[in-house]
């Protein structure tokens, strides 16, 4: 495990270093001019760090939700949690344009509400099965999507343009404050999820069994939902809906380290950061000086990878 952990951190270091060196503008390694320093410190670095935080956030949320709901398809994007956060951010944008802090707050609220809604719909007296959960997720996702589409239609054309781009996942609006906020959220969220890792391991067997082992099921559920909403809210408010990270990263990690959540959660955080920073480096450089939305790149990599994983298992 130590070896795998070490390798993962090495990979993160390599990807971060490559991301710092690559970009639309070519920067020398030493002796940067004032302008080049500004490009590096004001534009490139915040964006890379934000990408790392967003990737870690989405991946730990996916790992936590999958274990809690005993469902390999549980993922912020598929469950409508991302869309809930997106709608919250949009409402904040429309009604409190000048107050930027309202965006992550409403995103968090939206993510939380969507999570609870999906959970309530999926849970029946007979318990919760895979089909009900996925179905509820799809319903909440499509419902929220249509509300978002209605809102963008009602907004004027200029705002619509920035939102359609943002909805696809876009890290270009990274700011230093945004990085602090996402970093804080992902640290808190990961710590909460790791504190519940042992309980989550037991709950993967079944809620009743976990209860028999003395796990306070309701409390665990609340903490995991809360932590997921926190990290997804922060990630979406900063970068829109970046898909597939929460789905494929925990799967890949489990393939390597097994299903012990004490390992899956932290390893997912690192692997998620690697994935998004890698994808965003492509988004920044592939058609430079133009840019792709990072969500398009993660989906382009994530969808085939997920199909491969599906066929393997």
């Amino acid at each position: 495990m130590l070896l795998i952990g070490g390798l993962l951190f090495l990979l993160l270091a390599i990807v971060l270093a490559a991301a710092v060196m690559l970009g639309a503008e070519r920067l020398p390694l030493f002796d940067l001019s004032e302008q080049q320093r500004s490009i590096l410190y004001d534009i490139r670095l915040p964006r890379i760090l934000l990408g790392a935080c967003v990737g870690a956030s989405l991946a730990v949320a996916g790992a936590g939700l999958q274990s809690l709901l005993r469902n390999p398809l549980a993922e912020p994007y598929l469950l409508g949690v991302s869309n809930g956060a997106a709608l919250g951010t949009m409402l904040a944008f429309v009604f409190f344009q000048s107050l930027e802090i309202t965006r992550p707050l409403l995103a968090f609220a939206g993510a939380g509400l969507a999570t609870v809604a999906v959970y309530r719909m999926a849970k029946s007296r007979a318990g919760m099965n895979v089909e009900r959960l996925v179905l509820s997720g799809v319903i909440v996702t499509t419902f929220l999507s249509s509300v978002i589409v209605m809102l963008t239609t009602l907004l004027d054309a200029a705002k619509l343009r920035s939102f359609t781009f943002w909805l696809l996942g876009d890290l270009s609006q990274a700011t230093v404050n945004g990085v602090y906020l996402s970093f804080g959220a992902v640290i808190i969220g990961t710590i909460i999820l790791m504190s519940q890792a042992r309980a989550l391991n037991l709950m993967m067997v079944g809620e009743r069994d976990a209860f028999d082992f003395g796990v306070e099921v309701g409390r665990v559920r609340m903490l995991v939902f809360g932590a997921s909403s926190l990290v997804v809210g922060a990630a979406v408010a900063a970068s829109g809906s970046v898909g597939y990270v929460g789905l494929i990263v925990p799967h890949l990690v489990r393939l390597i380290v097994g299903s012990d959540n004490r390992l899956v959660v932290p390893f997912s955080a690192v692997a998620g950061a690697i994935f998004v920073v890698f994808a965003d480096t492509i988004a920044r450089t592939a058609i430079a000086p133009r840019e792709l939305p990072v969500g398009a790149v993660t989906a382009l990599i994530g969808a085939p990878l997920f199909i491969y994983l599906l066929r393997r298992n």
């Binding site: 503008e25 500004s38 004001d42 490139r44 920044r284 430079a288 000086p289 133009r290 840019e291």
Partner: peptide
């Protein structure tokens, strides 16, 4: 292209 989304790095340079 007609209306590109431009890299901020390029914009700054």
């Amino acid at each position: 292209t007609a209306y590109p989304k431009l890299s901020k790095e390029t914009a700054s340079a």
